[in-house]
Design a protein around this nucleic acid. Structure first.
Lengths: 152, 152
DNA sequence: ATAAAATCTACCATATTGGTAGACATTTAG
DNA sequence: CTAAATGTCTACCAATATGGTAGATTTTAT
């Protein structure tokens, strides 16, 4: 049930780009430095996001990347699917990678996995990068979040 | 975000054992044949479940496995954690494998991942194998479930 | 023209996944 | 008491996924 490093980096880069929306393109170098993401790895990630239409790029000198749409029109789910593929815990409850399962008893597992998939996508397909920016700005304001941040 | 084959097999074997609770021990051979799980692989899985106290075993001729507790006292979460480890999508929101994250912006990702972890564990730590048996019996009764089963 | 940027192609080491093989220990039936 | 059936233990192993890196190529602003 792990989020891959790739998706994690992608979310961080996307938040960075969203925080700077409408300031023109930002360069890989800058994002990788600020978010401490290996540059070559980030190149792959941003390229993938461009190919699925989440980012726009400008080549050549003074080139860079920017969001292809307003941050409130891009969800976390869209980004994670672009990099990691299907979100569903098993393929028989996946929209993206659906494959039927045959076992009889498996179907009751399936119904639980469906509940879980729905719970996950409820969060990921609702939450936009505009929301993320709002949360980020809020947590920058009140600095006393350190108090409870690690109390899980 | 995938459920491993190991956990999938474990859940299926557990449901099989729960459906036959209080009928004495069942043998690996039977479970592996009925649920079509590679026998040697299932051996590892059941052994793990015994070591964490979810199953009891009886060695030797006429030996086998049975639930160590009533099915309503064993949750799916317990079984999945025994085999796959932590359920949380990132370690910084895990109870089982907690490790702090340092990035500032990551904390807003963290808060979303916390929501997801909670949504997942709400399902997995609530659902017991008694519930699973009930669901299985219900879906055996009304056979028209075929109609909507694959309509996702 | 040149330098800086994205893009493309091709690797690669390591860890995880999904197993298998075979010897050993324990128990029951005969 | 012995044979057969069962769980237990240790050790492998192939295939795939993960998390990268290297280097050449194309594009563009100056």
């Amino acid at each position: 049930m792990k989020l891959s490093k790739k998706s994690d980096y992608a979310l961080r880069a996307m938040i960075y780009l969203a925080m700077n929306y409408q300031k023109g393109t930002l360069q890989i170098k800058e994002i990788s430095a600020k978010e401490r993401i290996p540059q070559k790895f980030l190149e792959n990630i941003l390229l993938t996001l461009r190919k699925v239409g989440i980012l726009n790029s400008k080549m050549g000198l003074k080139g860079g990347y920017e969001l292809a749409r307003s941050p409130d029109l891009i969800t976390l789910g869209e980004v994670i699917r672009a990099l990691d593929g299907a979100i569903a815990p098993v393929n028989c409850v996946s929209k993206m990678a659906y494959k039927p399962c045959s076992e009889e008893v498996n179907c009751v597992i399936r119904s639980v996995m469906m509940d879980i998939r729905n719970a996950i996508t409820d969060v990921l397909d609702t939450m936009t990068f505009a929301d993320m920016c709002k949360r980020a700005k809020e947590s920058l304001d009140k600095k006393e979040n350190d108090v409870f941040t690690y109390a899980i």
